[in-house]
Design a protein around this nucleic acid. Structure first.
Length: 814
DNA sequence: GAGGGGCGCGCC
DNA sequence: AAACGGCGCGCCCCTC
């Protein structure tokens, strides 16, 4: 892929924009009404309003001109609109569109500005104020829209001033343009002109505004001397940063937009069942929680009551010196009684006992009393423990069920947000847009699961409410242990070697290897015991491997033993224990055991967790935490450092770099990231690398899905043939290390295998030192089952369903 | 009534 | 010296 010809954008750049019918559910690429174009003519920006057919011709001409760079704001949207218009006319525009992206001839000012902000370390913030980006006209929170970019790059807040017609062009569809109101004609032209101007300024072909870059008493960019009355804003012709990565990111945004436009469909009956089961639980618990005062009669939480209960349970006593125990103080602004911030509305003396508190802030000088589930459970107070479990399904009811509802009547579309700080991708929500597609729970609570089973039906969670159209299957391919490999690659590139990488290249199980070191066993013994279920130490070996696994993943980002212990206690699997304190809710009742993973029991075989608790570790206060667990975590971390000797220098490299340089160049993509602290930087190195790999794989998968491509990789089982993806499969979305889409059910095997080939190939390109370890895994399924695994039937991949608990098809086993 | 900060929690 | 990260969203609470 070559980079866009940014130094000659004024000669070859055309800003193009479309105005369409409103975006409607299921119609993400609505019909075109009118368009506009802006180019540099005789040194000035000339904008033109284009009638519908002229707009389409303008796009086609620009796409076919190998010199031309198409410039837009969220250009993927316009590109799809045009592709759909052309398809209606019997013309397949996809080859030309993909070619333009591959040649780096598409420029998106929004992506460019986000990339610049990543380099400068202020993504999503206005660098002048360090506050969240806001639309200069509407004042609403936003991302890098055209009007925000115009403000940030040109220092003008007048973009979109004629936006009265923006949402209403359908009304004008059958009115001759000559009869349109003046502002309906100027708005699209202004958009195109602003877009072009922003692009030229970003490329340094026109002055732009930005922050000063002080060196030796002067601004490197504008030359202004550094004095106390120097202008706040720097005006210069310095180019925006990270433009060398623009072409790839714009291409990615196009591939993601294509998938997002198809969207996802949900099964109404399944959502009904899920919601009813969750609601039943909430209603059953409601009277008790109202009686305890945690909830008000209307079901809302009374935070002051909960926080006071927590503070009491953790031993606080005495009276708050500010509110005198009333929990309320008069507001300095309005005089209304508001919660006392000194005591976090507990009315108690917070210094009288080590109650878990959030970090202090200006608003809460002592922090607020924490009320998370883990804190409630550990309090030892039965009412609070009950409340912790009663809350478990609230998120299902309040967040996920309403989101799933969006897809019942017609597919719910997605709105990708690319790139993020690390290079990953997120999805934004909104009316009839699913913003939580990457965040849907993989499993529901034991109580909810029991309730769902009691009611019959086949829904067992949130994700399986999502279904493909009849005749289609979902494919889901993910990189196997992707971050272990990219971490190893990062280590080779930063410090010159990686023992982890060598192990992965040999096909060794890195988690078992670390577990063996922790046990003091040779790897051979570890492997044998893990395999032998009858071995007396089998269970112990499995526990060690599990803890080693979380260690391998956590410590790469610089995690310490305290946070590791707390994270496992909060998020790990429960620890059943015969003499435990009955914290584990099995769906019916509390049974003996601890909530969350308890390292002291699993690794050291302790007879109880929390015999000694610390409330301070390394001079930092913390929630009461089992000392024995922290000791185990410390040993795991030490084993980890011994096992992978590259880890220490790797972390030291980032520690030093974060403190002295303050920015880092990502491997492979060469994207600059600024402003990351040590942990963020250590993480970003391998997280971003995997994201870049996955995005390139996504682009190639999309290409083969929409354009006839003959597979030219001799190692491919499809060498010399038309890609099996073409015409029978579509990507839908992307979850960091997972490519998710649909395929005709009869070709599911070839589709998921080809997607896998592409993923592995791209993985190897980015991690050449670990090619043998670069792997991915395909899965097919008739619903989005999180538990799905590859199932093979007569040598071909088959659809997984919950009745499968082995990696072979049930038919084949029979 | 809108919006913004703080928090907690879902994912990878 | 010591330190996992970045996301989106709902709720509560407060302000305007």
């Amino acid at each position: 892929m070559h980079a866009a010809r940014l130094d000659t954008l004024h000669l070859y750049g055309s800003a193009l924009d479309t105005e369409t019918h409103r975006i409607q559910p299921g119609v993400p690429a609505p019909p075109l009404v009118v368009g506009s174009c802006a180019e540099v003519v005789d040194g000035a920006i000339a904008g033109t309003l284009l009638e519908r057919e002229t707009t389409i011709r303008a796009f086609v001409m620009a796409l076919d001109d190998p010199q031309r760079v198409i410039i837009g704001a969220n250009i993927a949207y316009d590109m799809l609109v045009i592709a759909v218009e052309l398809a209606r006319r019997g013309i397949d525009a996809m080859p030309a569109i993909f070619a333009a992206y591959q040649q780096g001839r598409v420029y998106d000012i929004q992506v460019a500005e986000a990339l610049h902000a990543i380099a400068e370390g202020h993504l999503g913030k206005d660098p002048r104020t360090s506050k969240q980006l806001k639309d200069p006209i509407t004042g609403k929170m936003g991302r890098y829209s055209l009007s925000i970019c115009t403000d940030l790059v040109l220092g003008r807040i007048d973009a979109k001033r004629n936006d009265r017609w923006r949402q209403s062009y359908a009304l004008l569809e059958h009115v001759p343009i000559a009869e349109w109101p003046e502002d309906a004609r100027t708005y699209p032209v202004d958009d195109a002109r602003n877009t072009l101007e922003v692009a030229l300024a970003q490329c340094g072909l026109m002055p732009n505004v930005g922050l000063h870059r002080w060196r030796d008493g002067r601004c490197l960019q504008c030359g202004t001397p550094m004095t106390h009355d120097a202008p706040v804003v720097c005006v210069s012709r310095w180019r925006r940063r990270n433009l060398h990565t623009l072409a790839d990111e714009v291409y990615t945004s196009w591939a993601l937009h294509l998938g997002a436009s198809w969207g996802l469909r949900t099964d109404a009956a399944s959502v009904d069942a899920l919601e009813a089961a969750a609601r039943a639980g909430r209603e059953a618990n409601m009277p008790d929680l109202v009686r305890l005062g945690y909830l008000r009669a209307d079901g809302s939480e009374n935070g002051a009551v909960v926080k006071r209960a927590v503070a009491l349970a953790y031993g606080c006593s005495g009276v708050c010196g500010v509110c005198g125990g009333t929990q309320k103080v008069p507001s300095p602004k309005s005089g209304n009684p508001i919660n006392c911030s000194e005591c976090s509305a507990t009315g108690l003396n917070l210094d009288s006992a080590p109650v878990p508190r959030t970090d202090p802030s200006t608003k809460f000088p002592k922090g607020q009393v924490q009320t998370g589930r883990d804190i409630l459970t550990e309090s030892g107070d039965e009412d609070l423990m009950f409340y912790g479990y009663a809350q478990e399904d609230d998120k299902i009811l309040d967040t996920y069920c309403p989101d799933l509802r969006k897809g019942c009547a017609q597919p719910v579309n997605l709105r990708p947000n690319n790139p993020l700080e690390t290079g990953r991708v997120s999805y934004t929500g909104g009316e009839l847009v699913l913003g939580t597609v990457q965040l849907l729970p993989r499993q529901v609570s034991a109580r909810l699961l029991a309730e769902l089973k009691r009611r019959g039906g086949h829904v067992i969670g949130v994700r399986d409410c999502i279904v493909p159209d009849p005749g289609w299957l979902f494919y889901s391919n993910d990189f196997s242990g992707g971050e272990l490999v990219t971490f190893a690659e990062s280590c080779v590139l930063r410090v010159g070697f990686s023992e982890l990488g060598k192990a992965l290249n040999l096909g060794l199980d890195a988690h078992a290897a670390l577990g063996a070191t922790m046990l003091g066993w040779p790897m051979e013994k570890m492997a044998a015991v893990l395999k032998d279920k009858a071995h007396p130490e089998h269970k112990r070996a499995k526990n060690f491997r599990q803890c080693a696994k979380w260690g391998n993943f956590g410590f790469m980002g610089g995690m310490g033993e305290l946070k590791f212990t707390l994270t496992q206690r909060r998020q790990g699997a429960d620890t059943p224990h015969p003499s435990g304190p009955s914290q584990v809710w099995d769906g019916e009742a509390f049974v003996a055991g601890y909530r969350g993973m308890r390292l002291c029991i699993l690794v050291d075989g302790a007879d109880a967790c929390g015999k000694v608790k610390v409330t301070e570790y390394k001079r930092q206060s913390c929630p009461p935490t089992c000392k024995a667990c922290i000791d185990v975590a410390k040993r795991i971390r030490e084993s980890w450092l011994r096992q992978w000797p590259e880890a220490k220098p790797y972390l030291e490299w980032h520690s030093n770099n974060a403190d002295t340089i303050g920015e880092v160049v990502q491997h492979y993509s060469n994207r600059i990231r600024g402003g990351a602290r040590f942990c963020a930087e250590s993480n970003g190195d391998f997280q971003g690398l995997l994201a870049d790999v996955a995005k390139r794989a996504q682009c190639r998968v999309s290409l083969e899905q929409y354009v006839r491509v003959i597979v030219d990789d001799p190692t491919s089982r499809y060498y010399g043939q038309l890609s099996p993806l073409y015409g029978v499969s579509r990507s839908i979305f992307f979850a960091h290390d997972e490519l998710f889409g649909v395929t005709h059910e009869d070709v599911g095997h070839d589709v998921s295998c080809r997607v896998n080939e592409i993923m592995v190939e791209e993985f190897r390109k980015a991690c050449p030192n670990h090619a043998p370890a670069c792997k991915a895994e395909p899965t097919l399924m008739g619903r989005w089952w999180k538990a799905a695994e590859p199932v093979w039937h007569r040598g071909r991949l088959a659809a997984w369903s919950p009745s499968h608990n082995q990696k072979t098809c049930q038919e084949c086993r029979a």
